[in-house]
Design a protein around this nucleic acid. Structure first.
Ligand SMILES: [Fe+2]
Ligand SMILES: [Fe+2]
Ligand SMILES: [Fe+2]
Ligand SMILES: [Fe+2]
Lengths: 224, 224
DNA sequence: CTATATATTTAGGCAACCCTAAATTAATGC
DNA sequence: GCATTAATTTAGGGTTGCCTAAATATATAG
């Protein structure tokens, strides 16, 4: 089997078994990969001769320890590529997902880690799912999870927080950096103006930010 | 034929016809793609039924107008990906070439243009070959080329320039933004200290930058 | 517990791409 | 110009990964 096909099956089986909390049925794999059921049965039979999956006829497919490790590696490649395409290049999320799902088979482990470092070891994919840590990632305490972050636009007057993630095109992000709005920067909402516009203070200076942008800046709140 | 295979043949035929200043022999294509000669003959016969190539038995293959346009598009995708992997992520040039040659079939035109813009529309690939202009590139007077950029560490005392590309992790870039070191910012080298450390002025303030970082900040010099 | 409906596998086949060995064409040296 | 050599194509075959139709196993409903 080609490496690309193996990877695509493993990725799909991981996704379905997690959703099922149980084995992946061949029909589910077929639907996900848009293939006929017999094609999946055939591939799954071959794959079970490798050490990646466990297959019981008329029952379903589960990943072995080895298969799970491999599937997680592929998923990570996919998510980091998708994050790069969407958050750094500003590509359309739907196109980015499809492209990431193809490029994930071409990019090496060493290159994906460089890309991870380049993006500051992100821990959340624009599709909303968490990204697992890799060899390159700081292994220390994983800090506050993305779940705890809140859009800047949600802060109340007087509330303070630390900018954590900015999901905007790099052009806009560059403009924001130039006025001090960058990750790990502390900000305070001074006043909320009309139409969702915020007046915030950062590094002593005061700037106004529109609602569109404020909704894309995730902060970790520290209260008033 | 699969799109990927077509693209790989077109890319190769473009390369060889340019080198030959004449048609590409099947044996040359076979050598370049590491295939047997009969396999290439077969594919080339099929391809000539499309409108991409002109094939004369026992003579060779040339690209049609349409095929040439398509081949140039693929080459551009390849070069921009390779430039990104090497110049931005710092990947090994040999690995980067191989990965770019696979990813080029997955990335869309719209995404590659975003990547081109992200890198400031580079016109030279790390492999040394020029990169053709795309839709996204400024068609006017082609400004300073990437070639003309020089590491900040190379500027002499008193020399001024504009920051163009910063090839560092986003963590370090974030720190740099907070002190005003961002693309399109003007800087001046005030004094060179020991060990390659620079004292530079930017936006009126004065900061010191170590040699490691200064070597990764490309600037367009404007002299003293 | 059976009859029917659904899910899954088996059987048989096909297209894309690649291969080696043999035949053919073109080039080269007297 | 003809024999030898080299390049190229044709013939015949193999693998992979997919398909549809038929057979079989499992689930569901009276
Ligand atoms: Fe994928
Ligand atoms: Fe990382
Ligand atoms: Fe390629
Ligand atoms: Fe461009």
């Amino acid at each position: 089997m080609s490496n690309e096909r193996i990877e695509e099956y493993l990725e799909t089986i991981l996704y379905i078994t997690k959703k099922n909390h149980g084995p992946a049925r061949t029909s589910q794999i077929a639907e996900e990969l848009k293939l006929s059921a017999p094609s999946v049965t055939e591939m799954v039979q071959k794959l079970s001769e490798s050490e990646y999956i466990e297959y019981t006829p008329y029952y379903g497919v589960t990943l072995t320890e080895k298969g799970c490790t491999e599937a997680l590696r592929i998923k990570r490649r996919h998510q980091l590529l998708e994050t790069f395409l969407v958050d750094v290049l500003g590509a359309d999320p739907v196109i980015a997902h499809k492209e990431a799902c193809e490029m994930e088979h071409s990019i090496s482990e060493s290159t994906i880690e460089k890309m991870c470092a380049f993006m500051g070891h992100p821990d959340i994919c624009p599709d909303g799912n968490p990204i697992g840590q890799g060899e390159c990632c700081p292994t220390g305490p994983p800090g506050a999870s993305y779940r705890d972050y809140v859009p800047l636009s949600e802060l109340k007057e007087g509330e303070q927080g630390t900018i954590k993630v900015i999901s905007l095109t790099s052009e806009i992000k560059d403009r924001l950096s130039s006025i001090g709005l960058i990750p790990d920067q502390d900000v305070r909402v001074k006043r909320k103006l009309g139409k969702g516009t915020l007046s915030i203070t950062t590094m002593g200076t005061e700037v106004a930010v529109g609602n569109d942008i404020a909704r894309k800046i995730m902060v970790q709140s520290r209260g008033v």
